[in-house]
């Protein structure tokens, strides 16, 4: 399978994730977009692993670590979102704006 097909998919998913982070209002959707970005990175790593010579599995190991850390980050992120919701009853990023210039 050609490597560059996979890389185009990866880049596409990454950019969709970037759009999601920058454009969406709901904090949970932003978290989901981050997950898409991290998945794109994982696919990158696995694809490169398959394309490189040798028997090493560095790419897959890296991907496993990214999955573990992504899960941890999501846990912390949702805890923060819950905290905001409990104190101000909104998770809209537009309304979370007390601190100014």
């Amino acid at each position: 399978m050609p490597l560059n097909w996979v890389l185009v998919l990866t880049t596409f998913l990454f950019c969709v994730g970037v759009y999601g982070v920058l454009a969406r209002r709901n904090a949970v959707i932003v978290l989901m977009s981050i997950e898409i970005m991290l998945n794109a990175v994982n696919l990158n790593l696995i694809a490169f692993n398959g394309a490189l010579e040798g028997d090493r599995l560095i790419g897959q190991v890296f991907a496993l670590f990214v999955i573990a850390i992504a899960a941890a980050e999501l846990g912390v992120g949702l805890a923060i979102v819950l905290l905001i919701y409990r104190n101000s009853f909104t998770v809209s990023l537009d309304e979370v704006n007390l601190l100014k210039w």
Binding site: M1, P2, L3, A47, A51
Partner: peptide, 9 residues
């Protein structure tokens, strides 16, 4: 850049 490289399956 990665044109021509294939992933061995």
């Amino acid at each position: 850049f990665f044109d021509g490289r294939t992933i061995s399956l």
